[in-house]
Design a protein around this nucleic acid. Structure first.
Lengths: 330, 330
DNA sequence: ATGAAAGCGCTAACAG
DNA sequence: CTGTTAGCGCTTTCAT
């Protein structure tokens, strides 16, 4: 039913080779034949079959994106950027929501390999390093240590942590707590909390880190936050490792009657365009989304083309002021 | 470098057919050979090539998702649900962010066809109906009229509009405006505004619909909302056709010193889990996400299997109360 | 400037 | 229970 290259050849009265040549704009063709072939293609409403094309040696131009879930606006934003950039570069995106689940992630990896993707960009890591080592595919990680050989793209987490902590200190906070997802694994994002601890120590303040858990239910997070705030009225600053948590803190604080920023100052992390648009009041550390997306893909294509990247410098972040930190920020 | 089925056959000392049989668990095999083949597969770290498999007649198990952008939490949520459900059903997801751009959408359609996807789920429609008619692929639309032949899955927009409008009226609002994306095209979602108009008329109130534009910049939307509110202090109720807009109204209203819900009552639309978690104060009409996802995919697989669906009834929606509508909603 | 032929990795009759 | 033989639709030497 669907017209094939051979059909086109037949209609145009040329060989399949010739049709292939005009499709790929390859070798030398007379204008005459070109015209004939194009006409035939149009007539048959011909569409090339990428499967066949790839089977016979061409790249699939398929890239797998493994992220926790696009239901999280942060990843949604990032994935959207990546997909756009990939599309512009002629790649198609296979979406994989790992849900931070090891089995699913393993299954995705297998599936992507089976589908002959040209490369993978990932930001989950529930699998052992060895499992990643044995993947014979170009992989680039976002803010994750997957394996020593896998390039990492990230923004400057230490710097971001510093800026956030300094901002709270310089606004007069003396009891600053930091809320993180999970404190354990040695991930790049933990540099944020390392910087926070360093800054507080420099100012002779005591760091206090509370982990909320990455997959924890929001209602539970809320409760933890509320309890934390209630039990310790001396807390006057909160640094959250992501903006959504900061939102929770803001809401709970206001419900408890704490004035923000008078009694309590809050700063988040990520600074997505979404947050900027719908929660401009939130002070945050802004990651350079577009730059990250570009670099992620530049790195991946470099890997695909067999040009493994040199070490990648983390991209600069930036403080975005907001009402949760200072009253005069316009 | 990558082991093929033939390699496995050679190592196992059987024919390719036999290997194919054990892979597909097809026909009858002796335990002995099965074991041999599995051993060989393991030894060679064999992974089947889906391209080849599909080329020789099998389905690709690939589904294309065309949505405006997963950077919008609403679509992010929906796409996440769809991807999860698809994965569970053995399908892989190709993500397409159309950005409501006709050229891109056309390119995506062509690309998906070239990649032999089994089907498409879409929620954009910048293309003419005829362009969709000529797609020889199973398509299901979410809340969109693409072509008479293309099944539409949606929740009950008219009912949702009714519930929202009734809620505002019964809370005593007398001057209720409705904010929509765009009022023109005859889409299913316009039933919301039809219902709104009907309800207001029944109560001898005057409907007033303000379009904000789907792709309009948020800052512009903000300005429009602020101006609207400022210019007409008699407005005491706002019905927004999506939750994000409702958020904007809430923020602008409070900045203008309008007390919500005392002076102004607000109700949104969509009710994503994200909104529920991070903005529980917002009253809204909740769409049944999971059910929509399930139905979308059930419908698509039905189309793929050549069982075109009967007419689909819209799924029921539900009022989710919140502080923006009534003070006592816990 | 154009064609013939072999083959990418797998599946699917059709034998035996 | 297992193997032989043709392709699927396209690309790519190698000829002409």
């Amino acid at each position: 039913m669907m017209a094939t290259l051979n059909d086109v050849a037949a209609v145009a009265g040329v060989s399949p080779t010739t049709v292939s040549r005009v499709i790929n704009n390859y070798g030398s063709l007379s204008e005459k034949t070109k015209t004939k072939v194009f006409a035939a293609m149009r007539e048959l409403n011909y569409a090339p079959n990428n499967l066949a094309r790839s089977l016979s040696g061409k790249k699939t131009q398929l890239v797998g994106l493994i992220f926790p879930s696009v239901s999280n606006p942060f990843f949604g934003e990032l994935v959207a950027t990546l997909e756009n950039t990939l599309f512009a570069a002629g790649y198609k995106t296979i979406l994989c929501n790992s849900a931070n689940n090891a089995d699913k992630e393993r299954a995705y990896l297998r599936m992507l390999a089976a589908n002959q993707v040209d490369g993978i960009i990932t930001s989950t890591h529930n699998l052992g390093i060895t499992e990643y080592q044995k993947i014979a595919l170009p992989i680039v990680a976002f803010d994750r240590n997957l394996a020593p050989t896998i390039p990492i793209v990230s923004s400057d987490n230490y710097q971001g942590g510093r800026i956030a902590a300094e901002a709270l200190v310089s606004q007069g906070c003396r009891h600053i707590v930091m809320l993180v997802s999970s404190a354990e694994t040695p991930e790049p994002t933990n540099d944020r909390q390392r910087a926070y601890a360093d800054v507080l120590q420099q100012h002779h303040l005591t760091p206090q880190v509370t982990p909320l858990g990455f997959t924890t239910d929001v209602s539970v997070k809320r409760l933890t936050i509320r309890t934390l705030l209630q039990d310790d009225p001396t807390i006057d600053g909160v640094f959250c490792s992501d903006d959504l948590t900061a939102l929770l803190v803001l809401e709970e604080a206001e419900q408890l009657g704490r004035k923000v920023p008078a009694d309590l100052k809050i700063i988040g992390y990520d600074g997505t365009p979404f947050m900027q648009a719908y929660h401009p009041e939130l002070a945050t550390i802004q990651q350079p989304f577009n730059a990250l997306g570009q670099l992620l893909i530049a790195t991946l294509t470099a890997c695909i083309d067999g040009r493994p990247p040199k070490v990648l410098a983390p991209l600069p972040v930036q403080l975005r002021p907001g009402r949760t930190l200072t009253l005069d920020w316009a």
